[in-house]
């Protein structure tokens, strides 16, 4: 075997995130970002949402969504920077910024959801 590359792991996260993002994010974003603020659909009240977000299953779901979507972003954005701007010589910096950002966001999501009350 060749040197064990980490690329398969990053790609697996990217793909899982891509699937998650494709299936789930459009409806979430449509409701939260457009339909509720613009009053197309009456927004659910604070009490209901707070109750929903307090139960463990939705919290696990939200954590997975944040975690995978962020690693999806990190992987794609890293290659977009390489190819789109031809800055592959900044390889290490880009790598650290992208996956570092994803790890930071994931930890933050974990912190917020763990301490949700």
């Amino acid at each position: 075997m060749a040197k064990q590359s980490n690329e398969p792991i990053l790609w697996a996260l990217f793909s899982a995130g891509g699937v998650f993002a494709a299936f789930a994010i459009p409806v979430h974003l449509f409701l939260l970002g457009l339909a509720f603020p613009l009053g197309w659909i009456p927004a659910p009240g604070y009490e209901y949402l707070h109750g929903l977000f307090s139960s463990p299953l939705p919290r696990i779901y939200l954590f997975a969504l944040c975690f995978l979507a962020l690693f999806h972003w990190a992987h794609r954005f890293r290659y977009t920077l390489y190819d789109g701007l031809q800055i592959k010589h900044l390889n290490e910096v880009i790598f650290v910024c992208c996956y570092g950002g994803a790890i930071f966001g994931t930890v933050l999501a974990g912190y917020l959801l763990w301490n949700f009350h």
Partner: peptide, 17 residues
Amino acid sequence: FVAWFVVVLLLQIRALS
């Protein structure tokens, strides 16, 4: 924009909390 949505979502979770 996928990442942007995560940011909005995290803000929502924080606000709810």
